[in-house]
Amino acid sequence: MIVYAECEFIIPSAHSLKEKRAVLQRMITRTKQKYNVSIAEIDHQDVWQRTLLALVSVASTQQAAEKELKRAIAFLESYPEWQCLNIHQEFL
Rank of each mutant, 00 (worst) to 15 (best):
V58W: 05
L55E: 02
E66K: 14
D43Y: 06
L55C: 11
W48E: 12
F75W: 09
V47D: 05
A65T: 04
V23Y: 12
A74N: 09
Q49N: 12
L85N: 06
I11R: 01
K67H: 14
K18H: 03
V23W: 12
R30Y: 10
A59P: 00
L69W: 04
T29Q: 08
F9N: 03
A14E: 00
S57N: 04
I39P: 00
S13E: 10
S13L: 08
N36T: 01
L85P: 00
A65Y: 13
E68V: 10
L69A: 08
E8G: 08
E77G: 12
A74V: 11
A72Q: 08
K34H: 13
E8T: 13
W82R: 00
E6Q: 14
S16R: 06
L92P: 01
I73S: 10
R50S: 02
L85T: 08
A65K: 07
L92I: 13
H15P: 01
V58Q: 04
I2V: 13
A72N: 07
V47N: 04
A65L: 10
E41H: 01
Q25V: 11
A5K: 05
I39Y: 09
A5E: 01
V47T: 09
E6K: 14
S78K: 04
S16P: 00
A40R: 06
Q89N: 07
A5P: 00
Q63T: 13
S60F: 14
L92S: 13
R26E: 10
A22E: 09
H88W: 15
F9S: 04
Y79G: 02
D46Y: 10
S78V: 03
I39T: 06
Q62I: 15
L92W: 15
R50V: 06
H15E: 06
E68Y: 10
I11T: 03
H88I: 14
K20Y: 07
L17K: 04
Q89Y: 11
A59H: 04
F9C: 06
Q89S: 12
